Amino acid sequence: MDLDAYVAEHGGEWRRLEDLSRRRRLSAAEADELVALYQRAATHLSLIRSRSPDPILVARLSRLVLSARNALTGAPAFSWAVVGRFFTRTFPLAVYRAWPWWCGTATVFSILTFGLMGYIAANPEVAGYFLSDADINAVVNSDFEGYYSEYMPQNSFLRVWTHNALLTGEVLASGVVFLPVVYLLFLNALNTGLLGGIMIAYGRGDVFFGLIIPHGLLELTAVFIGAGVGLRIGWSWVAPGPLRTRGRALAETALEGVLVALGLVGVLFVSGLLEGFVTPAPLPMIVKDFIGFVVWVAFLVYVFVLGRQAHVEGESTAVEGEIPMAALPAV
């Protein structure tokens, strides 16, 4: 193929296609012309790729064909209905489907955490293997309680929100290979058990639980959901089931994992607000704990009521406009 001659022959058509693609309004004749030129340009691109794959010309035509396609199909319009469906159907459904995984994860690591806490509370000398006496005194007398009022509420909120979102993202993503998520959760259980055991051993258990419960119930639940969903993704390629390939099973569960991760950003936003504004508030401990408990129960009701309802009705977690994986041929 003489590339220069080919460009000279069809360059006028490409320029015309580019001009039509940029227009906001087209007449009926121009719309028909746009369709015809788009089809021809797509053919030209295919021929050039197969016979004389000049990278610069291929890139130019690819951009032109994509622009023309967008002009023909139109960009998807933003819809609050899609947002509403995500929070009332898609997200709770994805979390509900994975409930055995994250409930199991929460149970195992809660038992581990409280076991460590009780052991250290009964044997306070064990804490000396991790912290010096000066550090233990600082934690008991000032550091633990002072941590929640160290920053302005809005700064504390943003700090813990981003930190917890990162931790949840790590446990969710690492679940695909199993061991990293177990390691991250064990570190979290060790730190919580150590601090709780020290505070209980020195008669400050009321302060520990009074400051942890307002935000910790929702925060830890979000982390456990991320870990459980991550482990579910990992298990999907180990045991895909009789009707799915490993690739399809991994793709389907990973897609649900992405949706869960997106929804958990909002959940952690709420837990961050609780930690930034409620935990350090000058309110009685019982009031702050009650607020945290009510928010946590409301989230669980939200997941199990709306999620189960969507599951029973046969709802899908597929994003609007996406071709469901089940409709695609298995490879």
Rank of each mutant, 00 (worst) to 15 (best):
G257F: 08
L57M: 05
G74S: 05
I48F: 13
A98Y: 04
R89T: 15
D4S: 12
G118V: 07
G321K: 05
V270C: 12
V182G: 12
L34I: 04
V177R: 13
W101I: 00
E9V: 12
F91P: 03
E150L: 13
V258E: 06
D289K: 14
H44A: 13
V270R: 12
N137F: 03
E275I: 00
A81T: 05
G146V: 05
G216A: 05
W80L: 14
G210I: 15
S236P: 02
E18F: 04
K288D: 10
V181D: 12
L37M: 11
V303Y: 04
V95C: 06
V65M: 12
N70I: 12
S79N: 06
A5I: 06
D206C: 01
G205W: 07
K288Y: 08
V265R: 01
M1R: 14
P242N: 14
R89D: 09
R85K: 11
W102K: 04
F290C: 14
V258M: 15
I213M: 14
A249N: 06
V229F: 11
E9M: 13
L190Y: 09
A326S: 15
E252V: 14
L194N: 05
G115H: 10
Y151W: 10
S132C: 05
V287H: 00
D2Q: 10
A59G: 13
L283I: 00
W102H: 11
L306K: 03
W101H: 12
T168P: 14
S236M: 03
F304G: 01
A29H: 03
E219Y: 10
E313W: 01
G197N: 05
F78T: 01
R244V: 09
V140R: 08
I111N: 05
G205K: 07
V297E: 02
G272S: 10
L264D: 11
A31S: 08
I200F: 06
D143K: 14
V65P: 02
W235N: 10
G11P: 00
I198L: 01
L262V: 15
R24A: 15
M285H: 07
L262D: 02
W296G: 01
M117V: 01
L64D: 03
Y148D: 03
V319R: 09
